[in-house]
């Protein structure tokens, strides 16, 4: 078995511990393993054109903070904590610039723009995407982590820094709102 194949066999925590010791190959395996998940996390967050940049920022932050990772924490929890912080920073940045530049809500480079309504519709995701986008951020994040990532509520609570009971109530409210939204459509 090649050294790279051996790395592919390792779990996230073991890879992260190697990355902490500046093992570049181990870090690359982590990137390959989780980039799709993060990409869709940001895409479903309402990012229209630069979700790949946010994925890159998250991994860069993961690299910078690699020494803070302790093996007792689940790796995805750690990664989502960082991704959430990147997203919060992005939202803050957008708010700052909204004051400065009106009408900059989209930067249409055809190859980077989000899917058009027609594309999404053809794929059957237009209504669902719009419904998700209509949710308040706090509810949408619970859906993202609970529905798409299928994380236990305790882990969601740790990532969002809220009680498990709040996760539960937010999930219920989010699903109820989505249901209403989609039924009205």
């Amino acid at each position: 078995m090649t050294p790279h194949a051996q790395l592919n066999e390792m779990d996230d925590a073991a890879l992260m511990l190697r990355a902490r010791d500046d093992d570049r190959d181990a870090f690359e395996v982590l990137v390959k393993r989780h980039q799709n998940m993060l990409l869709n996390f940001f895409a479903r967050s309402g990012v229209q054109y630069d979700y790949e940049d946010l994925v890159q920022q998250t991994f860069l932050r993961l690299y910078r903070y690699r020494n803070r990772y302790v093996a007792t924490a689940k790796f995805t929890t750690f990664l989502f904590l960082l991704a959430r912080q990147v997203w919060i920073d992005e939202l803050r940045r957008r708010k700052r610039h909204e004051r400065l530049v009106k009408g900059l809500t989209a930067e249409p480079r055809p190859e980077h723009a989000g899917p058009s309504a027609a594309d999404a519709g053809a794929a059957g995701g237009m209504d669902v995407g719009a419904a998700l986008a209509s949710l308040p951020e706090g509810l949408r994040q619970v859906v993202e982590l609970g529905v798409y990532q299928d994380l236990p509520y305790a882990e969601i609570a740790a990532i969002l820094k809220i009680p498990v009971g709040t996760v539960k109530s937010r999930m219920f409210n989010a699903l109820a709102k989505l249901r209403t939204y989609l039924e009205e459509k």
């Binding site: 990137v31 990409l39 790949e52 994925v55």
Partner: peptide, 17 residues
């Protein structure tokens, strides 16, 4: 919700990261 199509990263995303 889960049937919503997923996005795929650009081929060079890992390289850029």
């Amino acid at each position: 919700l889960r049937s919503m199509p997923e996005r795929m990263p650009a081929a060079d995303l890992t390289g850029r990261i």
